[in-house]
Design a protein around this nucleic acid. Sequence first.
RNA 1: CCCCAGAUAGCUCAUCUGGUAGAGCACACGCCUGAUAAGCGUGAGGUGGCUGGAUCAUGACCAGCUCUGGGGACCA
Length: 946
Amino acid sequence: MTDYKSTLNLPLTSFPMRGNLAQNEPKALANWAKKDLYQLIRKNCAGRPKFILHDGPPYANGDIHIGHAVNKILKDVVIKSKTLAGFDAPYVPGWDCHGLPIEHRVEKKIGKAGAKVPFDVFRQKCREYAAKQIEGQKKDFIRLGVFGEWDNPYLSMDFQFEADIIRSLSKIVQNGHLHKGFKPVYWSVVGGSALAEAEVEYQDKVSTSIDVRYSPRDQSELLSKFVPTGEDLGNGEVSLVIWTTTPWTIPASQAISISAELKYALVEFDAQNEQDERFGLGKERVVLAAEMVNQVMSRYGVEDYRVVGLASGTSLENIECVHPYLERKIPLLLGEHVTTEAGTGLVHTAPDHGADDFTVSRGYGIETLNLVNANGVYSDKTEHFSGQHVYKVDEPVCELLAEKGRLVRKEKFKHSFPHCWRTKTPLIFRATPQWFISMDKNGLRESAMSSIKDVRWIPDWGQARIEGMVEGRPDWCISRQRTWGVPLCLLVHKDTDELHPNTNELMEKVAILVEEKGIQAWFDIDLNDLIGADAKDYVKVNDTLDVWFDSGVTHQCVLERRGELVEPADMYLEGSDQHRGWFQSSLLTGLAINGHPPYKEVLTHGFVVDAKGQKMSKSVGNVVAPMTVINKLGADILRLWVASTDYRSEITASDEILNRTADTYRRLRNTARFFLANLNGFNPETDLVAAEDMLPLDRWAVDCAYKTQNELKAAYDDYNFLVATQKMHHFCAMDMGSFYLDIIKDRQYTAKAGSAAHKSCQTALYHIIQAIVRWFMPVMSFTAQELWPNIPGNNEDSIFWETWYDGLFPNDVDAKISDNAWQTISKVKIEVNRQIESMRKEGGIGSSLEAEVVLFANEELYSCLSKLENELRFVLITSKATVRKGDGGSTTEIDGLGVEVSASENKKCERCWHRTEDIGVDSNHPDLCGRCVENVDGSGEVRHYA
RNA sequence: CCCCAGAUAGCUCAUCUGGUAGAGCACACGCCUGAUAAGCGUGAGGUGGCUGGAUCAUGACCAGCUCUGGGGACCA
């Protein structure tokens, strides 16, 4: 028997079936770095319209987690798909470098700035620490296959950047948005600094709640306000009872707030308390909100009590009490924040330590006392408690109150309480001088609200989200009392607190210095050098800026600064938490400086959760580490996972999902490989067949790719990568794998090499793989580049500046076999497969080429199927296929179609494996069919349709 | 406590404006051995989170609830 295998055009390629991504991707990266691929892309995209995706800087601390990976990959997919769509899309990654977290790490290593280490040394150490963190993160980001200007990223600690932050602040001052305020802000006593709202997190805390008696200065005056409910106003000492969960604020107690809306009751009772006899005074009278009497008495465990008088809240305004243990007047104030949800309806008011307290007190001309130092210790002017820490003073305060007979009740109280996000310690409110960007002083809130509408928010609910936040947010406190941050660089008058009249010029002078020497320049500068004789009247503000300000002004420090970038950016793309972070800080500074938002589109993605939908946390142990995935499966798998999930809500990651993704990847890769293998020997320069000369089936395949590509363009354009990947997969697995490729194997392998039948097919394969490789590129970049040089005729060394393949073409309107006809044929094929399968189950046949089919068709189907003439068998992959009009065979799910399958009784052609009647027609080839003889010895068979 | 989003086959997702749920993957079984740590075929998988309601009819509309994620408020 002759070995005819050598006469076949079998697939051949050096492109490996298995990607070995974990091993091969690093090699590709090294290669790309060597030829400076990113700059090559820039060079090749020069002159195209720009698309600017501006990178939101990750904080320069810690290893990258899966959230970082999702964010960077999505950005990279956007960048690459925009490049594919014909844009010049540069990407300058950046890092956020200043701020508390880094300071904490450095403190742990070398000690507190100013105490153990000089400030300048400390700042230098922070700089070095951040730089090291950046190197680590950068390495991992690059490994993800994210393209960008990694050799020259932006760092918020670059001297130039630091200087531009100062210039940005200066513009905001010029535009009248800055103001100095003095009010209670969240204060981290451990961190020793004010915190922004965004830095506050709520945790459960068990506090000591106390009920405290305040005595009226003039008992009869107070009683005169009450209308007796019975015969008299009862007996016993009179006091007003407040309830608080922060005993440590009692030293700063300056007033009691009551509500104008409420009635207050005078209650007579005897709180002889079993727990601690010190709390009870015997028979006494207290003032409580009338509607809370039952609740309070029940809390005190008192059953026997009597409401003896009632008074309106308003009538009690300005009544004076005395501090429980100090000679201090405590007036009653009317405040809208007083509610009956908890407590007594009388609210202890310490303007130093509460926002409402501050506001109410200011209305009555009561100032703050400033008893608590930055480190949380009571100052010298604090009677009884000077030198003690606020965290430790609750108990001593209670002791003192009990001793003075002022404590009615003491309990443990569990509630949610603000904590410092870094140190995880409870926060206090502390009144301090701070600098604010005012939301309303110069219309910032108003312009923000209106310009939000000019931005495209993806998904659209992002707009409502940020509107809600901007609408209700307080002024932005931008000052921090920290070391590692950009200084505010303001000079204020010693007496008047006014800014220096030449503030903006001075800030520019400082900026120039900072450009040379970094932020340390401000701290080193001698005022005499800066303002000469004025130096004696002015002091430097030593506060640093909130880090959110740093990243908020990247539109100035990066977009405006770098020639290849443009402000406003086309897109900002971050996690949905940035509505209150970067999106907002950028919006506010953009408006305060330029009068417009720094972005046109804002795309947000959700957070990564585990298989059960739970958020990932180290303590739960359900984290998926990106580098683990990459080292096991490869970056292209991770990228495909990101692209194939709906990023708008939570993004689920689990071993199963990633393994499924790897399955999908293999299918895509292997389909592409099959294209390459069948293009073996094909030279597009000489072998490409004109569209009109191609076989209808091949035309159909190109048309199918053409349609798919249009869908992909739309999907990429809409940032709908999920749809894009699904369509790619469907095309590869279904349209190609189970239909077209399966069918053309026969022709591809057995037709005479170089014949029209063969070249038509290869032409289709060529066009389609050129398209596919580009479809893959934004998502599976490593694989796309690996495929690229294996495609015949591709001499360019990189795919990464290619645009959509324009060599695809739709089917002719008057095609011999229309799209509809192909669709019908494909459905018929499925029915035929069913019948073949049932025969196979009975053991009648194995391969479908062992079968012969007869199709019984109605008029319509007949005219469709008979178009293929005797080539229908190739489409059905059977050895014989005939169509007859009328009924017959097994019924199918298609109306008017019957199918009859039988095992062929003919011999099998050794070469093409079809079973035909003409095996051995040529005595030179006794084992071949006539068709194969023609292909081996003749000029090659002629195909008309498939 | 309030607001937003999501809840459809083991997994990823469809199901446009209501008319007895669809793909692909995974799985099972089989075929092939000329894509071979591949390929093809067939098949089995869903009380569409729960409960009510409107409708001739709904997974899709309304109300309430549960779970998950996100955000906000309160937290004196």
